[in-house]
Each structure stands twice: as C-alpha cells, then as structure tokens.
Simulated scan of single mutants.
Amino acid sequence: MKIIAEETAAIVIDYQERLMPVMAEREKLTAASDILLRGLRVLDIPLFITQQYTKGLGRTVGEITEAAGTEQYTEKISFSAYEAVLPYIQGKKYVILCGIEAHICVLQTLLDLTDNGYVPVLVTDCISSRKLEDKAAALRRAEAEGAVLTTCESVLFELLVRAGTEKSKKIQKLVK
C-alpha cells in the first residue's frame, strides 16, 4: 500500500509546554518533527494541531507551531484526538500521526482511526513518551493494530513520489 498525498492529512498531537521538557530524546523528537511538519507544508498536506487540556498543560511549543506554520489548534479533553479532528480529516484515507505521548494520546488516536476505517501512518521518529519503554510498547501495539510505521524522511519521499521538481528540491534541503 502506497500513501497518496491527495488522500492524506496529519494530526500533530499535544507537543505542549508542560509535556515537552520531560519527553525522552526530546531534541531528536523536536528535530525530526520540525522536518516532518515543514515537509508536509511543502507537500500541501493539511495538518491539524491538538492540545490536551491547554489550561493545565500549556500551549503547543514554539518550535512546533513555527514548523507547522500555524498556532491554531483544536482543544481536546479526551486522550484520543479522533473526535476533535474528525471534521478536518473526513474524505481522507491516510492520517499521519506525530506527537506525544506515544502510549497515551497518540496510540488512542491511532486505535480510533483504525476502528473508523482510516489508515494511520505512525511516524516513529516523531513520537515520544516520558519513558522509552512506553514508546516501545506503543510501537508494538500500533503495528499489531495494523498501523503503517514509517520515519519522517521515508514518508516525505513517499508522498513526494518524484525527484527533479521544486517540491523535491525543498524536501531534499530539509532532510540534509
């Protein structure tokens, strides 16, 4: 199965001020997520930021809103982002997932997407948890549930399809 750009949206889950400082491998997460989000913008993939209980966990960190090109977000109280973003992803087949925490909000969103006929695409270098064992467990569960596991660079080039275009030049610049 190949991920088709026109049939794809992305959910950017809970990269919030009070959560990010305690994420495992935070610097790697931020760097890969920056590349992913900038690349998705180049490829015209619609992306939607969620925030879990903003009053308590703060806003999305600046590095992520800058990479996403927006500070707009959808507030959620449920751990899953599915219901909050459903109006935005209708008509899409593939939903790219990135964010935190892998074993809670990201995984529950993935499960709801699967249950409702979407193909979740989990970008493994753009998710994290406080503990790496929780991330590892989330990856095993996601794979068992039928999610597509990929990396930032892999999914961007899959969506790109061809080299030699203006978009491919921009993507290549991002990943170098």
Rank of each mutant, 00 (worst) to 15 (best):
G99E: 05
L36E: 09
I13P: 05
L110N: 08
V175S: 05
K169N: 11
A142G: 10
M20E: 04
G58W: 05
A81P: 07
E143H: 09
Y53M: 12
C126R: 02
R41A: 13
G99K: 08
Q90C: 03
I49F: 12
E158Y: 02
Q52C: 06
G69V: 00
K169L: 12
R140T: 09
G99I: 07
Q51K: 10
L97T: 03
A147G: 04
T165K: 13
K76V: 08
G69Y: 02
L19Y: 10
F157T: 04
T70M: 04
C98M: 09
C126T: 09
V42R: 08
D115W: 14
L47F: 13
V42F: 04
F157K: 04
K76T: 04
R41F: 08
L159G: 01
D112A: 15
C152F: 00
Y53H: 13
K2V: 12
E6W: 01
I45H: 07
Y88V: 01
D115F: 14
L107V: 12
K173F: 07
A10L: 07
Q108V: 07
S128T: 10
L122V: 15
E17L: 01
K76Y: 06
L174Q: 05
T50P: 06
A102C: 08
L132E: 15
M1C: 03
T65K: 06
R141I: 10
A9M: 03
Q52Y: 12
Q108W: 08
